[in-house]
Nucleic acid binder design. Structure first.
Lengths: 352, 352
DNA sequence: ATGAAAGCGCTAACAT
DNA sequence: ATGTTAGCGCTTTCAT
């Protein structure tokens, strides 16, 4: 139960604590003999240096905080996995904090905990909590990197913006659009995701709107769609079972989802009431989760380069901690066509 | 960048450090006036007490280590989520450590890190690493609970066994068996999962074998299956694409998976080569992941009560930390029939 | 009710 | 090459 201390080791080895400390850190000169003796004792006593006491001297705790909305989402789980691995490779520990999306009380506690640990930096997926609590972190000039989402134009105490790494929805969204049009869809709508939660969802919606407008001159029918969207009862931007009926009434034949959870909801709902995905309704969603590949039909996705997101954000943070200026990064999204995109109903046989 | 210290607060408030400390801990008597003044200064300075320095006095760090094999597995992600939430509710921080399953070097580092943090206890999903590294934790008499799997009959330094909470495969497996037989299957096999990784998989296999033997008197055909299994080239127990051909040759019409990953592999493989699940091949798998509900056909599962597993293991650990004897717990598994279980090919129309 | 002083486990000057 | 001494930020006697 009782942890052995450096003093126990010193005593047992018949040397002073500082000698043991030196042996621990390879600092200063030590005779091979005493070093061997000390290591011997360390083994015997199963001594492990107390990293807390250790970190009180250096300004570094070699611990990075990772704040993610919900680890149960496989997208974030992947991200966490990658980040923890990368950090470990650089000798840092990761303190993963997941908080229930909405619960600002809980997230406040989490942030407090992080701060209390005197973390060296933080990697954050900004959620709705951001504005309220994140200042607590950035205020002190703690190196922080935003991942997957940006969060307005938050600035650190020194006036520098918090660098972020996220993905540019345009390339993927554009190609998704093209693919849908190619398949004959003219009434396309979007379920962006909870708009109030992150600017990411808002941006996806805006880009979608822009694309619609650009198509305007070429594809008259899509015009209607823009109107369609305003009638949407889910102002929040998340999916809502009511939407299915509405789409049917308005002749919407394709939907793009800004958030995988919503897509999954729709897939379930469609299965329940017998709407054939890829036939009655074509869908595309952001985030290329493993699930989407094994569903029948497979779901077309707009993939974010999650691997490089994970590794690069760590690099960015380490850069920041080293004091160098670090710019925000946008990764390209990539559209992956799959069978969930088919022709609109009533056009069967028209197109290969 | 610089964190405010208790001294800064004391100075600013014009009191001594000990007074501030008292205000922080609600210990001792303090006049309302100074307390208010101190809290005021704390706010102004954004002071957060250093939990490391704090925990050096009490023998408690109020931090629990959580060791899980792979956070990307939604089953473990769920578990981690539940556990972290429950611990937070009890005022504990969770240090989540995920390590690549096989990498014993990495897991050793992780364990070192945990130990260095002077964690108050640990919740562990024992993996292959167990035997080698877990002793490091239990040896000191650190309160440890095993979750989801047991790990041989490891004992702590005081001779007490490490309590574990896992699930009894029998109820679910028995019902799965019944259901398969009811649907007319007589050649059933199992892919238990990586046997060397955990006794859990071995147990599932053994229970499966027992069930086969029990059926022996009643159902002659299942006898063949027992033989089938021994020919299996994957001694490790994990799925292997070769198996599909083999099953076809041997007339295996139903497979039970001890591990969801293997089931997912098979589903993919079947899709690729056009084997119809629930028609050509019936499958059942452990772990009722969300994926299995939305696949078509939906996959029959043997569900573990993950929610109570998550909350109860925390209770067990807290109990242990409080010094009380704690027994191991086995939760019941439950079979959930879904469309992935149909009749064997060639018997269509025979059974409703 | 508050302050002074000792000490938690460790590191980092200073000695020697 | 090793020991002594002072802290790191905090809690906790023991005084006052």
């Amino acid at each position: 139960m009782a942890y052995a201390t450096i003093r126990d080791v010193a005593q047992q080895a018949g040397v002073s604590v500082s000698t043991v400390s030196r042996a621990l850190n390879d600092s200063g000169r030590i005779s091979e003999r005493t070093r061997a003796r000390i290591n011997q004792v360390i083994k015997e006593l199963h001594y492990v240096p107390d990293s807390r006491a250790r970190s009180m001297h250096s300004p570094h705790s070699r611990t990075i905080g990772l704040l993610i909305p919900d680890i149960r989402n496989s997208y974030f789980a992947d991200l966490a996995y990658l980040i923890q691995g990368e950090l470990l490779a650089h000798g840092f520990q990761t303190l993963i904090c997941t908080s229930t999306q909405g619960d600002s009380h809980e997230s406040r506690i989490q942030v407090r905990n992080l701060l209390g640990q005197h973390i060296d930096g933080a990697i954050i997926v900004p959620g709705p909590r951001s504005q309220e609590t994140l200042d607590e972190l950035t205020r002190r000039g703690l190196p922080v990197v935003y991942v997957d989402r940006t969060s307005g134009d938050r600035r650190q105490v020194d006036g520098r913006p918090v660098p972020s790494i996220d993905s540019d929805p345009l390339p993927g969204l554009r190609d998704a659009f093209k693919d849908l049009v190619k398949h004959g869809h003219s009434r396309i709508t979007m379920v962006p995701g909870p708009l109030e939660e992150s600017g990411t969802f808002r941006e996806r919606e805006e880009v979608f709107d822009d694309l619609l407008n650009q198509m305007d001159d070429l594809q008259d029918p899509t015009r209607d769609v823009a109107c369609t969207r305003n009638d949407t009862p889910s102002k929040e931007g998340a999916f809502n079972p009511e939407l299915l009926r509405q789409w049917r009434n308005q002749g919407v034949s394709a939907v793009i989802f800004g958030r995988s959870q919503d897509a999954i909801q729709v897939i379930k709902a469609c299965q329940a009431i017998g709407i054939g995905i890829g036939r009655d309704l074509s869908i595309v969603t952001f985030d290329d989760l493993p699930v989407f590949r094994i569903l029948t039909p497979a779901i077309a996705t707009i993939s974010q380069q999650i691997d490089s997101m994970g590794t690069r954000c760590v690099r960015m943070l380490l850069n920041l901690m080293a004091g160098s200026q670090t710019d925000s990064v946008r990764l390209k999204t990539k559209y992956l066509h799959r069978a969930s995109v088919g022709q609109p109903p009533g056009q069967a046989g028209q197109y290969p």
